[in-house]
Amino acid sequence: MRVRALQEGYHGYFPASKARPVQPQKESAYAPTAALHSPPELERAQTLIDRYDAILFDAMGVLISENDALPGAADILAQLNMSGQPYYIVTNISSGSDETIFARLRDAGLPIPAVDRIVSAGGVARHRVLEELSAGRLVSYVGSAHAAHDIFGKHPNLHCADTAETFDTLVVLDDEGFDFKRAADHILSTFHRRLIETGEMPRIIAANADIIYPGKNSSLVFGPSIIGPMLQAGLAPFGAPPISVELMGKPGRAIFEECIARAGTDRLLMVGDQVDTDIKGAKAAGLDALLVTTGLNNSGELRHDENGAPAYVAKTLSQIFDGDLFPHRR
């Protein structure tokens, strides 16, 4: 789950500029000397994963669709397990703790060896939300009570946004297991009341920053962070200022910084199916990115400008092993 950076308000999901062919990026400063000076015939024998210390995989649309593994995903992870190549699942899924997401992906048939391979937006947001609660602020969540308590625990200042009368901070989790429309209506009224009473509005911490994500049979589904554009549009007639949004999940930097910290290196490759979250988020964090034409991009129709141009484009995950993406970038 994923889409466009929200820090400066809400704009169109895809750039209006004409899509451009993928352009090569500069060589990483961390590329091995041997890779820079090897003869062409040796370079052609290398595969894409040889260039990186670890691989970052998006979950939804790359490895799974809802609760089922996508074709070939389990085999790819099994190959990485055998080779010893480190990898992490970097997901905006915020329906539970990292342990809950780990169990969900294992139940889908993905052979992920340990929970520390899960880097979730909810897990990254946990520290910030606990800071808000420790400071005495009232925090409400968009999501189910189960998800919130699984990630943050229970706290007297933590309440569901579809019932809370007021709050200082709104944290966006997942859209599973509750009535999103009812919650959105109540949140709109709460923001409006705060605006009238104080001239200010609550801040938003977006764990799950997805505005859309892939559903079944190539369908599109609105993600939980659609609440941001909805609130901004609904409050515009009342002179509301831009809503302050702090991104924890993709495309925000926080989740990629967590990946770098866990891997102990920034020589990482992000593999995703969305330009505005996976690709732009990784590039903004200084990482290379591969756009795979599965999930949301299953027709290869996502547009991008220079900021969203991936280093590589692949039709299948298996191409990270077969070498046809290296040394030439598509």
Rank of each mutant, 00 (worst) to 15 (best):
V3R: 10
A5F: 02
A5N: 14
G9M: 04
P15N: 06
P15I: 02
P15A: 05
K18E: 15
R20G: 01
R20W: 00
V22D: 00
Q23V: 14
Q25S: 13
S28I: 03
Y30Q: 12
A35V: 12
L36R: 15
H37W: 04
E41D: 09
L42R: 07
R44F: 05
A45M: 13
Q46F: 09
T47N: 11
T47S: 15
D50E: 13
D53Y: 02
V62Y: 09
L63D: 04
I64C: 06
P71Y: 04
G72D: 13
G72E: 11
D75A: 15
A78V: 03
Q79H: 11
Q79A: 13
Q79Y: 02
Q85F: 02
Y87K: 03
T91K: 06
S95A: 13
S95Y: 01
E99G: 11
E99P: 02
F102G: 05
R104S: 13
R104V: 01
R106C: 15
D107I: 01
R117S: 06
I118F: 07
I118L: 10
V119S: 09
V119W: 04
S134K: 12
A135L: 10
L138R: 14
S140K: 02
V142H: 09
A145L: 12
H146G: 08
G153P: 12
P156M: 10
L158A: 14
H159A: 15
A164N: 08
T166R: 15
T166L: 12
F167T: 07
D174H: 11
F178V: 11
D179C: 11
K181W: 08
K181V: 14
R182M: 08
H186C: 13
H186Y: 11
I187Q: 04
I187H: 04
L188I: 05
R193N: 10
L195K: 04
I196A: 14
I196G: 01
E197T: 12
E197W: 01
G199L: 06
E200L: 14
M201W: 00
I204K: 00
N208Q: 10
D210E: 08
D210N: 14
G215T: 05
K216G: 13
G223E: 03
S225Y: 00
I226D: 01
I227N: 01
P229R: 06
P229T: 08
P237F: 07
F238E: 06
P242M: 05
S244F: 01
K250G: 10
K250C: 07
G252T: 09
G252S: 10
A254F: 04
A254G: 06
C259S: 13
I260Y: 02
R262V: 07
G264E: 05
L268K: 02
L268M: 04
Q274R: 14
D278W: 02
A282H: 08
A282M: 09
V292H: 02
G295I: 05
G295E: 05
N298P: 00
S299P: 00
L302Y: 00
D305W: 01
G308I: 00
A309E: 03
V313W: 00
A314W: 06
L317Y: 04
D324C: 15
H328C: 12
